[in-house]
Design a protein around this nucleic acid. Sequence first.
DNA 1: CGGTTAATTGAATGTAGTCAATGGTTGTGG
DNA 2: CCACAACCATTGACTACATTCAATTAACCG
Lengths: 254, 254
Amino acid sequence: MAVTAPEALALFVDRLVLRTPLTEAQKDRITSLPGRISKVPACHDIILPGQHTDQSCLVASGLVGRFDTMADGRRQIVAFYLPGEMCDLHSVPVPTSGWGLEALAGSTLVFVPHAALREATDDPIIALAFWRDTVTDASLLAKWAANLGRKQAIPRVAHLFCEMGVRMECRGLGERTEYDLPVTQAQLADAVGLTSVHLNRTLKALREQGVAFSGRKVRIADWARLTQLAEFDPVYLLLAERGAVGGDSRRSRG
Amino acid sequence: MAVTAPEALALFVDRLVLRTPLTEAQKDRITSLPGRISKVPACHDIILPGQHTDQSCLVASGLVGRFDTMADGRRQIVAFYLPGEMCDLHSVPVPTSGWGLEALAGSTLVFVPHAALREATDDPIIALAFWRDTVTDASLLAKWAANLGRKQAIPRVAHLFCEMGVRMECRGLGERTEYDLPVTQAQLADAVGLTSVHLNRTLKALREQGVAFSGRKVRIADWARLTQLAEFDPVYLLLAERGAVGGDSRRSRG
DNA sequence: CGGTTAATTGAATGTAGTCAATGGTTGTGG
DNA sequence: CCACAACCATTGACTACATTCAATTAACCG
C-alpha cells in the first residue's frame, strides 16, 4: 500500500505502462512529480460537481468513485478508481468538472498540480500515455452506460463484479475470483443505478449463483458462469492482446 | 452541408477551436489532412463492436451513433455525433474499439487515417486539442450514464432534448428550441434505454408539456421549463464560460 | 454493553416492458 | 392518380421488474 507520493506515482506509472511503453527517464519524470499526500475517511467528498481544480487526484490506497448528483440528492456513481489510477487526468486539459469525486472507503490520495502534469506532456510520449489513459476511462464509461441502459439488475451487478475482478487482478490487487471491494451496499447501489433495497435482493440472487459479496469482499465460485451471466467481454478494458484475461471473447456479428 | 473532406475538416476545426485556440497554420494542418469521403444510408453499421480500425470517422452530414450491443441484439446508443464531430478520435491512441458506430440518418462521412492524425499530434497544441476533444466526449458519456442510471423516462428524454438543443445551437445547426434530430423513435429509444413503446408514451407525455418530436424535428415551447424538468445543467458540455448557453447553472452544494 | 450504521425482509405501489393489434405516412409502380 | 408495400408511430391489456415505505436483524465501534 503506497504511502508516499513517489510510491503512489510509481503505481500510476505501472498503469500507464500497461498500454504505453515508457523509458526509464520517462518513468522517473512521472514518479518525481510533486504530490501532496492526503488521507480521507470513507464517504468524504473530494470534489463536488461543478467545482474547478488546479490539481489531479491520484488514488494511493482505498477506493474512489466519480459521481453525478440529481436534484433530490441521489447519486449515480459512473466510475470506480483503484490505487494507481488518476481520477481526473481529464481535468488537466479541462479544469472544469461536471462531476464529483468521493472516497468510498478510507483512502490515501495524492494531489498533483495540473501545472506539473501539463509540463510533463512536453514529452509527446507522455502526452500520448495520458491521452490513452483518458480514452480507457471513456471506454469503461461507455460500457457502464450501456449496462445501465440495457441490462437488468442481476447481469448488471454481475458485470460490475467481472469488471472489477479483472481490473483488480491485472493491477495485482487480488484475484478476479476473490478480491476486496471496500464499498457498502448503498454505494454499490449508486454504482449500478438501483436502490439499496433492490441491490440487496439482487445480491441474494447472485449468492445462489455462487457469487458472494460480504464483508466488503467479492468471492466468485464459477468465473466462466458469471461472465456468461453478465455478458462480460473484456475488450472494452483495453488491456491489449493479453488473451489470458478471460471472459467470452466472441467476435462481433459479421 | 459539407461535401468535401476539407469542408468537413473545417467543421471539425470549428469544434476544436471552441475549446482550444489554434493558429491559422494549425488549422490548415488539420484541414488539409487526407480524408476519404463516403456516403452511407440510414441504419448503416459503420464499425462493429470489437473491430480494429486504422482510421477515424468524421461526420460531415447526418447523424452517427456510438452503440454497444447486448447478446440478444438489443442496442444501447451511448453517444450521438453531429456534423463536425470525430466519432472515434479515441481510436487514434487505442485502435481497438469496444463499441460500434452506426449511421442513424443517411450521412456523409470522412475517414481520416490514424497515421495522419497521429502525425499531426507532433504539434503539442494539436495533441492537446485532440485530448480535450476526447475529454469532452467522456464528460458527455458520464452524464449519459448518470441519466440512464438515475432518471425516469420523462426527465431522461427531456435531458437528451436539452443536450442536443444546446449542441446543435452552438454548432450553428439550429436553435436549441427547434432543431432537426434525424432519428426514428426506435433509435431514440436505444439512446435513452427505453423500449420504443415506452418511449412513444413518454413523447406523448412530453407533448403535453409543449415539447414535440415529430417529423424528425424537436420543437420546445418553453426552454426554461424543459431544463427544469430535465435537471439540465450545461456545465458538463464543457463549453467554457459562455454563460449564454442557458439551463439552470445552480452551483454545487457547499 | 449500548448506540449507530449497515444489511435484510415483507408488503404494496408504480414504472417500464411485452405482446399484439391498429393507424398513418411515404414512396413506388401500375 | 390510385393501390400497395414497407416502415414507423400509436394504443391497449397484461406482466414483470424495481421502488417505496416500514420494520427487523445483524455487525461494528467506542
